[in-house]
């Protein structure tokens, strides 16, 4: 089994690699088009800013490559947001794999102590669908850190509530994505990664 982590100008790539190593799986971190195209599973992680990252992907023709993949693909955090159609973060047109849009969390003026931005820490998710969540119970906690969120829609396979309900995970065809960080979410997060690498298309 060949797992590729897409290398680009974003942080957090090493953490995903370490999490896979803990599962006894080795991954290749690369931006090489052939390596990505020929992988059995592709992970598209990331922490960063939407517009500069999209420009980077376009410059390296990774945008069309990602959209044409046929094997299971997992976007994480910024990866999820870039797989949506549009992000309010610097008014960015994204990959459009999911029709959902990415909006900014607005702190509540009435009581800022209840809802800080970024949404940082462990939150529970519900409405779990697809085999990505096999052996994961409703209301399990996962680690989030983000200031923008994907709206809920037809592709939502897990919902989280913070200020409003948003997509904690999305799926369409071979594309999966989580807003939370499975690589930092303890044993339940590791289970998500394990479920992903067991996916067949």
């Amino acid at each position: 089994m060949k797992i590729v982590i897409i290398k680009y100008n974003a942080g957090n790539i090493r953490s995903v690699d370490f999490a896979l190593q803990r599962l006894g799986v080795s991954a290749l971190i690369t931006a090489d088009h052939d390596e990505i195209r020929n992988a059995d599973h592709v992970i598209f992680p990331g922490v960063g800013e939407a517009s500069t990252t999209m420009s980077y992907l376009k410059h390296h023709k990774l945008d069309t490559l990602i959209c044409d993949l046929r094997q299971p693909v997992l976007g994480v955090c910024l990866g999820l947001q870039l797989m949506c159609s549009y992000s309010e973060e610097n008014d960015t047109e994204c990959l459009g794999i999911f029709p959902e849009k990415v909006r900014k969390f607005i702190p509540q003026p009435e009581d800022t102590t209840l809802f800080k931005v970024p949404h940082m820490g462990w939150n529970s998710i519900s409405g779990l669908k697809t085999t990505l969540f096999d052996n994961i119970s409703e209301e399990e906690y996962f680690y989030f850190v983000h200031s923008y969120y994907a709206t809920t829609g037809v592709d939502t396979i897990a919902t989280c509530n913070y200020l409003i309900p948003f997509s904690a995970a999305l799926n369409r065809n071979n594309y999966y994505a989580t807003q939370f960080h499975p690589e930092k979410s303890g044993k339940t997060g590791a289970k998500i990664l394990e479920n992903f690498i067991n996916l067949k298309v």
Binding site: S15, R22, V145, K184, G186
Partner: peptide, 8 residues
Amino acid sequence: IAQNLDIP
């Protein structure tokens, strides 16, 4: 630590 720890 990063290799071994599965929390932030």
